[in-house]
Design a protein around this nucleic acid. Sequence first.
DNA 1: TTGGGAATGTGAATTTTTTAACAATTCTTC
DNA 2: GAAGAATTGTTAAAAAATTCACATTCCCAA
Lengths: 212, 212
Amino acid sequence: MKSEHIPKATIARLATYIQVLSEFKREGTDVVSSERLAEACSVNSSQIRKDLAYFGEFGVRGVGYYVQDLITSIKRSLGIDRAWNCGLVGVGNLGRALLRHREFSRKGFIIRGAFDCDPYKIGEIVEGMEIVCSRQLPAKVKELSLEIGIITTPPERAQRAANYLVGAGIKGIINFAPSRISVPSHIHLEYVDFFHHFYAAAFHIRFAEHQE
Amino acid sequence: MKSEHIPKATIARLATYIQVLSEFKREGTDVVSSERLAEACSVNSSQIRKDLAYFGEFGVRGVGYYVQDLITSIKRSLGIDRAWNCGLVGVGNLGRALLRHREFSRKGFIIRGAFDCDPYKIGEIVEGMEIVCSRQLPAKVKELSLEIGIITTPPERAQRAANYLVGAGIKGIINFAPSRISVPSHIHLEYVDFFHHFYAAAFHIRFAEHQE
DNA sequence: TTGGGAATGTGAATTTTTTAACAATTCTTC
DNA sequence: GAAGAATTGTTAAAAAATTCACATTCCCAA
Ligand SMILES: NC(=O)c1ccc[n+]([C@@H]2O[C@H](COP(=O)([O-])OP(=O)(O)OC[C@H]3O[C@@H](n4cnc5c(N)ncnc54)[C@H](O)[C@@H]3O)[C@@H](O)[C@H]2O)c1
Ligand SMILES: NC(=O)c1ccc[n+]([C@@H]2O[C@H](COP(=O)([O-])OP(=O)(O)OC[C@H]3O[C@@H](n4cnc5c(N)ncnc54)[C@H](O)[C@@H]3O)[C@@H](O)[C@H]2O)c1
């Protein structure tokens, strides 16, 4: 089918598919049907087939999907069949947790630069990486070919961090700070806010528990 | 209007509204129109009015919304006008970052218990809280009236952590580990996976940059 | 080689979500 | 206190996403 616009929800589900498929692979399953994958992901099986159809035909009729092939195909479809160089701005509690998280490089997002403006932090080594002064951002973005910026500064500093990153020629920004920021339209911007999961939990526990 | 089913997307947007409204409040803005709020949140203004209509009538026609009142109303609608006692299982990199994050208690999610199975970690004090052995979970859940469980263990331990929490009588679970888990249907389960934001960024930078 | 079983890919139907449009309400000014 | 401007709440329309249903394809066994 190969389509233009891909729903955001599809991207999020593809992430789940990869996760579950990797588990299948680890268990030694070679082939999986959309039905079985759907069950493991708690979605409808045509949802899966439709999601995949946006990008191409990856299955074999009458058979199913070859697990390893499908993982590879989804990764290629998303553009994560190669490494992405990332720079992290704001090495506090959260920034440190991310820097130490092995899964980033395993998934192809390599954090190559860590920046902070606190003179006490500059020079410190975290997970084999030296924390660098934010003022060096422009130079480092070019030197290290950074493409994605991760903002983990306090919210009131997020816009400034974004400005630095944009000025330095970054292509996309993932903002973990709870503040809206503005960037030129050619920069891809994503907000990470997991509090809404807590809100949803609170809401459902309190109000929706007797329903359905 | 007051409705039954609330879309997940609405909950996520309400979180954004609260965030932006709080900023307006800090700036001293008392009244805001759906138009202005919409712009700050990058959504459509009828979207906002529709989202709010699920819960009641909070505005004044011809005037707009009183910022403080609206914050209060949204919080009450979501059930976060009171504190929620949370327990965190798995005090590693991420768990620590969450424990140290002040925003949790400010938003009404009080982490009252921290659990780990690593004997080297048990007894350690993090952010004024003693790390307790996971085996004490059932006792502590009751003692501290914990309602929401936060799982930050490695993925292969997430199911076990969930089992403990469910057995102990928790009402909802937020799972930060990248693994699907199963819980009884009366337990509210949320998955937190921010990698899909990275995937979306990679995808758009790579394939969608020339479009639109 | 053919037929039966299985499971994909996709157009059509359905459901859900978003956007538009506007009547109803409020405030302000004259 | 009436007219005009502003902005909500809500109904209707449009768009988007999900699910259904089935023709198509593939594998395997006889
Ligand atoms: N800690 C969490 O679990 C958590 C969870 C969700 C969201 N967040 C958000 O992530 C952000 C970081 O949280 P945290 O707990 O790590 O805070 P933190 O205060 O521990 O860390 C912030 C870091 O940013 C640095 N910084 C400030 N201004 C900067 C600038 N202009 N350039 C570069 N570095 C700068 C500070 O020196 C500090 O090291 C916050 O916005 C927070 O709301 C944190
Ligand atoms: N660090 C990050 O930035 C990050 C980001 C996204 C997701 N995650 C996920 O969050 C989880 C935790 O990540 P982390 O980096 O903190 O890992 P970590 O290894 O630093 O911490 C895991 C902790 O869980 C404890 N643990 C293991 N089994 C347990 C059990 N049965 N009961 C109680 N405690 C147990 C361990 O002792 C350890 O302290 C992982 O699943 C990871 O994939 C982490």
